[in-house]
Amino acid sequence: MGSFSIWHWLIVLLIVVMVFGTKKLKNVGQDLGSAVKGFKDGMKGEDGGANQAAAPQQVTNATRQDSNTVDVDAKTKS
Rank of each mutant, 00 (worst) to 15 (best):
S3I: 05
S3A: 01
S3E: 04
F4N: 10
I6P: 08
I6Q: 15
W7G: 00
W7R: 09
W7S: 04
W7Q: 09
W9N: 03
W9L: 05
W9K: 05
L10T: 14
L10S: 14
I11L: 09
I11K: 12
V12S: 01
L13S: 10
L13I: 13
L13G: 09
L14S: 12
I15E: 05
V16H: 00
V17E: 14
V17S: 13
V17N: 15
M18E: 08
M18Y: 12
F20D: 12
F20I: 14
G21D: 00
G21C: 04
T22K: 11
T22P: 07
K23R: 08
K24Y: 08
K24E: 08
K24L: 03
L25M: 11
K26R: 13
K26S: 13
K26N: 12
N27D: 15
N27M: 15
N27H: 15
V28R: 10
V28Q: 09
G29Q: 00
G29N: 01
Q30R: 04
D31G: 15
D31Y: 14
D31H: 12
D31R: 15
L32A: 02
L32E: 01
G33R: 15
G33A: 15
S34F: 12
A35D: 02
V36I: 15
V36C: 09
V36W: 08
V36E: 12
K37F: 13
G38T: 14
G38I: 11
G38L: 13
F39M: 14
K40C: 09
K40F: 07
D41T: 04
D41N: 10
D41P: 09
M43I: 05
G45Q: 04
E46G: 04
E46I: 06
D47Y: 13
D47K: 14
G48N: 14
G48V: 14
G48P: 07
G48Y: 13
G49T: 00
G49W: 01
A50L: 13
N51P: 08
Q52D: 00
Q52E: 06
A53S: 11
A54G: 02
A55H: 05
A55D: 08
A55W: 01
P56G: 03
Q57W: 08
Q58A: 01
V59T: 02
V59W: 06
V59M: 06
T60R: 05
T60H: 00
A62H: 01
T63M: 06
T63W: 05
T63H: 04
T63Q: 08
D66C: 04
D66F: 03
S67R: 07
T69I: 11
T69K: 07
V70I: 00
D71A: 10
D71G: 00
D71P: 06
D71C: 08
D73Q: 12
D73P: 03
A74G: 00
K75S: 10
K75M: 11
T76G: 10
T76Y: 11
S78I: 06
